[in-house]
């Protein structure tokens, strides 16, 4: 179940960034996941709920954007979308293609609460 390991990295990285920003709560984490990675969003969701317990992200939301697969043909230059099972160029059939989208495993951002700076003791 490698979604657990992936989510552990997501939380560690996001919680560190949130703490650097002085956040007291993480409301949501945005992930961008390519379709070709084979990562299962539901499994990520499950891992998030389990691993965020007791952290400032507990009860927060996970927003996952899935990026469809697309490639550029290195033979004819065609840019085309495809699925995970056939990566050949749709114009010329060449298999020499570079993936443009679909391989992403990215933490895009997070929505956090940062308390207003402490104004100090009330001057009387």
């Amino acid at each position: 179940m490698h979604e657990m390991g992936i989510m552990a990295e997501v939380l560690e990285s996001t919680l560190a960034a949130a703490s650097d920003a002085g956040a007291t709560r993480v409301n949501s984490i945005r992930l961008t996941i390519g379709e070709l990675t084979g990562i299962v969003p539901d499994a990520l969701e499950f891992a998030f709920e389990a691993l965020s317990l007791g952290t400032i992200a507990e009860g927060g939301a996970l927003e996952i954007t899935v990026v469809p697969a697309s490639s550029r043909c290195l033979t004819c230059g065609e840019e085309f979308s495809h699925d995970a099972y056939d990566r050949r160029c749709t114009a010329c059939g060449s298999f020499l293609c570079e993936v443009l989208g679909g391989d992403e495993l990215v933490i895009s951002g997070a929505d956090v609460d940062v308390p207003d700076p402490d104004p100090g003791p009330d001057p009387k």
């Binding site: 990285s13 495993l105 990215v106």
Partner: peptide
């Protein structure tokens, strides 16, 4: 507040 992170999840491994 929105934190813009845009970093690979497997950054440390990579």
């Amino acid at each position: 507040m929105e934190l813009d992170l845009s970093r690979p999840i497997l950054e440390k491994n990579d």
